[in-house]
């Protein structure tokens, strides 16, 4: 990761800002995916296939970046995630199959497809060649303050994009007709249908947005963070993002704070060694935190009323 290299080169910087910068880099894929999860679940569709969509996005963005450059790569990754999401929507919205079963199948499918595609395109089942990243950006003025430098200089544009997407998502969900309709379909699809809202279209939109963002998050991991695709690089982040969305009470801003918490745990698990605690357990910190958060959060968190319930018009 570039900022770490700069640190190693001797640019002085407070350790705290550096740790926070690392946490923010690791927050970004979680945040993108969690925001997508907000859209799909507010529309009433549970998407446990986010992990597979991230895997798919990571691989295809690496292929795209390798072939056409980083920007096209990220776009291809997002579209790849959306294609997997389309499968989920067809199976779970149109055919009203159990959404969790469909999501689990998506995860298996993405894993298998990526391994076969990787062998066909890169002649290696598990890694891609090194791929180019987007040019890094500096936040003007703030990057001149030494204490803030690790946070404000040499950033991936996607980090900025992810955080800008938080208020945008809030605005779309709460202040646009689309957002109102999406939420109504997640709360009471029958009432929404009676009012003439196209329930199926709305639910497809929510699922596809989650696929686009999960694919982009995978693209961030491959193109921006690692500069290559490596099998297993998503490491369960799709599930962690889902937990972050729940902990964030199905809201964009809540999802952001929860993602920051998980990003911090992720960064600690990589950077910190605790005496007398085996590193394997330190590495499991994000997973342990996810369980703790789920056990603690549910109770005062409230899911959309029709979340996970297939909508079936009576008489069909």
């Amino acid at each position: 990761m570039h900022p770490d290299l700069i640190l190693a080169a001797g640019v002085s910087s407070p350790a705290i800002a550096d740790a926070v910068a690392s946490a923010i880099r690791l927050t970004t894929p979680l945040l993108l995916t969690a925001l997508g999860a907000v859209f799909t679940e507010r529309g009433g569709v549970v998407n446990i296939g986010l992990e597979g969509m991230m895997i798919f996005g990571a691989f295809w963005s690496a292929w795209g970046a390798y072939t056409y450059g980083p920007l096209a790569g990220l776009a291809i990754g997002a579209v790849a995630g959306a294609i997997m999401a389309l499968v989920h929507a067809i199976v779970s919205v149109t055919f009203r199959v159990d959404q969790i079963v469909s999501g689990v199948a998506i995860n298996t499918l993405a894993y298998g497809l990526v391994r076969v595609a990787s062998q066909a395109l890169f002649h290696s089942a598990t890694t891609s060649p090194s791929v180019p990243s987007l040019p890094r950006i500096d936040v003007p003025v703030l990057d001149q303050i030494p204490a803030l430098q690790p946070l404000m200089a040499n950033l991936s544009p996607l980090i900025v994009f992810a955080f800008v997407l938080v208020p945008v998502s809030w605005w779309v969900l709460n202040r646009t007709v689309f957002g109102l309709r999406l939420r109504s379909v997640g709360e009471n699809p029958l009432a929404a249908d009676t009012l003439g809202i196209n329930v199926v279209l709305m639910r497809y939109s929510g699922v596809l947005i989650s696929g686009l963002l999960a694919g982009l998050a995978g693209g961030y991991l491959a193109v921006e963070q690692t500069s290559m695709y490596v099998e297993g690089m998503t490491a369960g982040r799709g599930f962690v993002a889902l937990a972050a969305m729940i902990f964030g009470n199905w809201t964009p801003v809540g999802a952001m704070f929860a993602s920051l918490l998980f990003g911090l745990a992720d960064s600690l698990s990589i950077r910190v060694t605790i005496p007398h605690v085996p590193y394997q357990f330190v590495n499991s910190l994000p997973y342990i935190l996810t369980i703790v958060v789920l056990a603690g959060a549910v109770g005062h968190a409230r899911a959309p009323a029709a979340d996970g319930v297939p909508y079936e018009r009576s008489g069909e």
Binding site: T108, L113, R115
Partner: peptide, 10 residues
């Protein structure tokens, strides 16, 4: 590639 069978599973 034998992973074709994983795809079939999904």
């Amino acid at each position: 590639p034998r992973e074709v069978t994983t795809i079939l599973e999904g």
